[in-house]
Amino acid sequence: MNPRNVGVIKNPDGHGTVGNPVCGDLMEIFINVKDDIITDIKFKTFGCGSAIATSSMVTELAKGKHVDEAMEITRKDVADELDGLPPQKMHCSNLAADALQAAIKDYKKKK
């Protein structure tokens, strides 16, 4: 277990939060964007091993991508990139793509 891109960006260009600690998963993603390219991305996650793994993977997938391209990253892409998730974890712990999309929407709104 060695997650990448852990942390917070202060005054980020975009910020997305999904999930709920009551259910056991909460994810936050922070992005900095230059010329519509994601130049920096960080996450914080409260959740199980799958939740942490998907958070880390989505940040790796999105880094350096155009925001429109990053917006297309799906839950399935993240799970596939991790060589699959346990079936019962596909729903609850696979929120990372949603968090990324929330961050990109936040960026577009602010722009």
């Binding site: 277990m1 056991g24 998963d25 409260f46 959740g47 199980c48 091993g49 939740a51 974890k89």
Partner: peptide
């Protein structure tokens, strides 16, 4: 502020086997 399955998996990296009541 932390979740039990992650605790279990992280402790396993030290080769220590513990249990958790976490939903996950």
């Amino acid at each position: 502020h932390i979740e039990g399955e992650s605790i279990l998996l992280n402790m396993d990296m030290y080769n220590i086997q513990i249990a958790t009541g976490s939903a996950c």
